[in-house]
């Protein structure tokens, strides 16, 4: 069985570098996109097994991403949202649009690995 494909949409390079490293080490094939345009382009070509996305991103927010995946691409791919503290309204909005889980910043990479694994096992 091949590695699970994971799309990491995060514009904070520092956090992305850390998560990219830990997720790859955790056995995932990671594609990193730092803005919404790249994410949209990637998703139009291929659908990953799971998406981990920040809410606040340039051009195309995490909220718009969920809406795009669920409504336009009609996909049930698991989506985990990364959110800053104090962004509860957006998190609720994300769940309403179809996000499967969320993790708040500062992100603990070990916790993220557990959540990613759990979502993939559900499917």
């Amino acid at each position: 069985m091949g590695k699970a494909k994971l799309l990491l949409a995060e514009d904070d390079d520092l956090l992305a570098a850390l998560l990219n490293f830990r997720l790859k080490k955790g056995g995932y094939e990671v594609t990193h996109s730092s803005d919404g345009k790249q994410v949209k382009e990637f998703l139009s070509q291929t659908m990953p097994d799971i998406i981990v996305s920040d809410i606040m991103m340039p051009y195309f927010s995490g909220i718009e991403l969920i809406s795009y995946v669920r409504k336009e691409l009609n996909s049930n791919v698991p989506i985990i949202i990364i959110s800053s503290a104090g962004n509860e309204e957006n998190v609720l909005n994300a769940f309403e649009l179809g996000a499967n889980d969320f993790i708040s910043k500062p992100v603990n990479p070990t916790e993220l690995l557990v959540r990613v694994g759990r979502e993939l096992n559900k499917n």
Binding site: D11, D12, L14, L15, P58, K105, P106, V107
Partner: peptide
């Protein structure tokens, strides 16, 4: 505000 938001995770990390 956006660029400030972007940098703050790294500063905290």
């Amino acid at each position: 505000a956006f660029v400030a938001h972007k940098i703050k995770t790294g500063l905290a990390m």
